Amino acid sequence: MTALVRAAHAGPAGAVTLLAVLLAVAERLEPGRVLLVGAAVLAGQLSIGWSNDLIDAARDRAVGRTDKPLASGALRPRTVRIACALALAATLPLSLACGLASGLAHLVLVASAWTYNLGLKATAWSWLPYAVSFGLLPVVVSLAGAPPEAPPAWVPIAAALLGVGAHLVNVLPDLADDAATGVHGLPHRIGPSRLPAAATAVLVAGSVVVAVGTRFTLASVVALGCVALLAAVALVGRGRTPFLAAVAIALVDAVALLAAQ
């Protein structure tokens, strides 16, 4: 069971689900609706994580990824295929139970993430599924309300920038392994020396969008100040410092987005 959870990319799946639940709470959805949104997002994220490891199993074995249960032999492909199919099957009714508009938006979100797994990750368009899926997340939550309402335009824009920044940061530790197995997405084309600065710039842009969208509330200004300090650290730091600073900026952006709801 532990191996199956690891193969689902439990950390990212849990983080996205938690963000969706917190957005739902911030939108003041009823408790049952909050749980429904959380269940739909979790099912979709599990399908995304398991499909990723299934598709990448051969590449992971080629570079000796012992942390990957499928690559190490700790988990049978059939087990993951069944789990992925069940999660995907659950995603459809759970999504539509949140409302037609919300459900359709969530299905597009999940389909977008699957396109990354199915091949876009190895192209210059690797950023696009992250922009679409993260940008749609607050839309899914807002449309799940009664009555359903679309969020202000700046909210999905800020979320999309957060997603692209998260993509650039997330790939940093795996650049060498990816390149060795033929994966040349946008982060690989930017290059390891320029990637921390690029990720920082995108995440800072997200912070600016939140500040402007909220008309510079105290919370957004404080967040922007924290981001500016972290950006300076990311740009002058050495070793893993730029990576850690970019991760911290992503977290500040997520909190600022939540506070703005």
Rank of each mutant, 00 (worst) to 15 (best):
L107P: 13
L107R: 07
L107F: 01
L109W: 06
L109A: 14
V110Q: 05
V110H: 14
V110M: 08
A111D: 02
S112A: 15
S112W: 07
S112H: 07
A113D: 11
A113I: 12
A113F: 13
W114V: 09
W114M: 14
T115R: 05
T115W: 07
T115V: 05
Y116R: 09
N117E: 12
N117I: 12
N117A: 08
L118V: 10
L118W: 15
L118R: 14
G119Q: 14
L120I: 00
K121W: 00
K121M: 00
A122E: 13
A122V: 06
A122Q: 12
A122T: 10
W125R: 11
W125S: 11
W125C: 09
W125E: 03
W125Q: 08
S126D: 02
W127Q: 12
W127A: 15
L128K: 05
L128N: 07
L128G: 06
L128F: 13
P129Y: 10
P129V: 13
P129I: 09
Y130K: 11
Y130T: 11
Y130F: 15
A131V: 02
V132I: 15
V132T: 06
V132Y: 00
S133P: 04
G135I: 14
G135R: 08
G135M: 08
L136F: 06
L136A: 08
L136P: 09
L136V: 12
L136T: 02
L137H: 12
L137W: 04
L137I: 04
L137M: 03
P138N: 13
P138C: 08
P138R: 12
P138H: 01
V139M: 12
V140A: 01
V141I: 12
V141N: 10
S142E: 14
L143K: 02
L143M: 07
L143R: 01
L143Q: 10
L143D: 11
